[in-house]
């Protein structure tokens, strides 16, 4: 009896990890091709972009916020970075007379734009007090608009080889997008769990009034939370641009929802103060494995969307039951 309770506890606590394992085992049995190293790396690569967004989103949701603008910010960062990273051989150049720049320039530009957009979100939320949902909803269309204006609606392509390396190269056999993803996981984990900023983010999400009384600079925390989210969007933009060796303004539309879904599947609570980086990673993997698996199985893409929706809802129901049991 006691034993069973313990098992139940573990199951509810790590339920989503079991789901992931079951999915992987099932897929490997049905389709041996799923098991190949290449496919596994492929799955990881595929989830790297929204996986990175989900990391930032975890920080945002832990603070009891939401960010709907990350897909658009990503697109804006990507087109700006790409425009600065075109090779001399490009047929249509964005900056016609500019010679090739070192890769660091487009990277920094992308990150900077991302962080700035995030800071605008954070500033609006912290200093005007408008709800995060509204502020980022506005920024979502604003950034998308800027991306279209910047490119006049056209893709920016033919990038320098080092850009291509970020998207398709390997480091010690690991695809670069996965390397970047891993680095971002580590950074976010440290940020959220081991810094004062992280601890205070939990406090702001847990009880904003109590945080204020405890001397937490709530406005500053919110500003940085969204700035970090924006930075993650910038990083994701670089990876995404590298993978496609081009960028276009319509990029990543709907990615904010995939990021929110990953975070949520991983057990981060919309009511604030609860969430883990590992959850965000597992959540992103669940989505990626599911998509990959369904594609391998030849399931129609419309049906895939339905399955995905069901999984998200079920995951949250399970998660709420876990929390309800504790209370």
């Amino acid at each position: 009896m006691r034993h069973q309770n313990r098992l139940q506890e573990i199951l509810t606590k790590y339920g989503i990890v079991f789901v992931l394992i079951v999915m992987i085992v099932a897929m490997s049995m049905i389709k041996p091709s799923f098991r190949t190293l290449n496919n596994i790396l492929n799955i990881l690569t595929q989830c790297s972009v929204y996986g990175i967004l989900a990391l930032g989103m975890t920080v945002v949701i832990v603070s009891k916020g939401i960010d709907l603008s990350v897909g658009s910010i990503l697109a804006l960062c990507a087109v700006i970075a790409a425009s600065l990273g075109q090779s001399n051989t490009a047929s249509t150049k964005y900056f016609v007379n500019m010679s090739e720049l070192p890769i660091i320039v487009p990277i920094l530009a992308g990150l900077l734009v991302g962080a700035l957009c995030g800071a605008v979100n954070g500033g609006l939320i912290a200093f005007t007090g408008i709800p995060a949902f509204i502020a980022t909803l506005g920024m979502m269309t604003i950034c998308r608009g800027f991306a279209y204006i910047y490119t006049s609606g056209k893709p920016v392509s033919t990038l320098i080889p080092s850009f291509e390396f970020i998207g398709q190269g390997r480091l010690l056999g690991i695809p670069m997008p996965v390397v970047v993803y891993l680095i971002m996981i580590i950074i976010t984990k440290i940020l959220l769990n081991n810094t004062r900023f992280g601890k205070r983010t939990f406090a702001v999400g847990g009880n904003i009034n109590a945080a204020e009384v405890s001397g937490v600079n709530v406005k500053k925390i919110l500003l940085w939370v969204y700035t970090y989210m924006g930075l993650c969007a910038g990083v994701a933009a670089i990876v995404s641009t590298g993978r496609m060796v081009s960028a276009q303004p319509g990029l990543a539309s709907g990615y904010e929802l995939t990021a929110i879904a990953s975070t949520t599947i991983g057990g981060t609570s919309q009511s604030g103060g609860i969430g883990t980086v590992w959850g965000a990673v597992v959540g992103a993997l669940v989505l990626s494995v599911m998509r990959n698996g369904m594609t391998i199985l030849g399931i129609q893409s419309y049906l895939q969307q339905i399955v995905e929706g069901v999984v998200i809802i079920v995951a949250v129901i399970l998660d709420m039951r876990k929390n309800a049991r504790k209370a």
């Binding site: 939990f202 406090a203 847990g206 009880n207 109590a210 204020e212 009384v213 609570s269 604030g272 103060g273």
Partner: peptide, 8 residues
Amino acid sequence: ATGIFAVL
């Protein structure tokens, strides 16, 4: 209201 962080 202003004391505890309930879920922490």
